[in-house]
């Protein structure tokens, strides 16, 4: 088991290297010159040169990449080009707001989607199932942005139920700002998840052992939880695990719309201002988490399904 986990984690190194390579190519080779952005409009050519030298942007590309890899290995991402703060501090301060937004949204979406999927699967091919699935597809067909704009207008502006914009770092005070974006996030994701879980659950519910359980007179709730849901755990766990690493960066759009000072808004801002250290650190963080959760996911398989052997 331990050897398995270590081997799998080592197997993730090429992927993490790949992510550093892609970020590097996108930023340093294809993207703009951050020195131009940092220096501002009134800067002279000498100022820009000085900035390039200060951040090592005048070195050959290969050496710039080596510098970057050195940062990765030492986990020291330096300071933001824009705010001059250490990147690690920025991430520490902003990961909280992001997770307060995305974690409750993921939990709510998953519980709702699995429950609706279970209802739809129990009534498969009947009116209720078709209605729920039609609603899901309709929900998927509306733009993310429309949900945000209409949600802000109807719930926050008209009904005054929530705050439109802003954030409070207080553990209790933050919810008056977070509930509306969480609702939007849940509504946006619900259609996709419900359809996915329904198809998984329909496959389980039509198996012979479920028919047997019903025939021998087991209570419907027991059939659904013990015989159907339990056997569907692997795809459900996978779907949740796969989305875990991406929770860290919050939601790029929602955070900037609702004024939540999280990593998503930070990332958008960093891309806009060519703030390389921030973008690099965050993409790397996510890819490392991605590799770790994939391994964790396979370990969980073995936990929920005794037939699975880790080798």
């Amino acid at each position: 088991m331990f050897a398995y986990v270590v081997r799998r984690l080592l197997g993730g190194i090429p992927i993490i290297l790949g992510v550093t390579l892609i970020t590097f190519l996108l930023l340093n080779v294809v993207g703009g010159d951050p020195a131009l952005q940092m220096a501002g409009k009134s800067a002279t050519e000498a100022d820009i040169q000085a900035l390039r030298a200060e951040y090592g942007l005048d070195k050959p590309l290969f050496y710039q990449y080596l510098d970057y890899l050195k940062q990765v290995v030492t986990l020291d991402f330096g300071r933001s080009f824009k705010t001059k703060e250490p990147v690690a501090d920025m991430i520490r301060a902003q990961v909280g707001p992001s997770l307060s937004l995305t974690l409750p949204a993921l939990i709510a979406t998953s519980i709702l989607a699995v429950s609706i999927g279970l209802i739809a699967a129990s009534f498969r091919q009947r009116v209720l199932d078709r209605g729920l699935m039609a609603l899901s597809v309709m929900g998927m067909s509306i733009s993310f942005l429309v949900y945000i704009v209409v949600g802000q207008y109807a719930l926050a502006f008209q009904l005054r139920a929530f705050q439109i914009h802003g954030y409070d770092s207080d553990l209790v005070g933050r919810w008056q700002y977070l509930i509306l974006p969480i609702i939007v996030l849940v509504v946006v994701g619900l259609g996709y998840d419900t359809r996915f879980y329904r198809s998984v659950l329909v496959e389980e519910i039509t198996r012979d052992h479920v028919t047997t359980a019903i025939a021998k007179g087991a209570a419907p709730v027991r059939v659904l939880t013990r015989h159907v849901l339990r056997n569907a755990l692997i795809p459900i766990i996978t779907r949740i695990m796969i989305s875990l690493p991406f929770l860290v960066t919050g939601s790029l759009l929602l955070e900037s719309f609702f004024g939540i000072p999280g990593l998503g808004a930070q990332l958008l801002d960093a891309i806009d201002s060519a703030d390389f250290p921030v973008i690099r650190a965050l993409t790397l963080l996510i890819s490392v988490l991605f590799v770790v959760t994939t391994v964790l996911n396979d370990v969980l398989y073995a936990v929920v399904d005794p037939r699975v052997r880790l080798e």
Partner: peptide
């Protein structure tokens, strides 16, 4: 590798880079 980068982030970063 591409899958381990958030889709929207990659899309936006790519668009910015290419638009230069």
């Amino acid at each position: 590798t591409i899958q381990s980068i958030p889709n929207l982030l990659l899309l936006i970063a790519l668009s910015y880079a290419v638009s230069q």
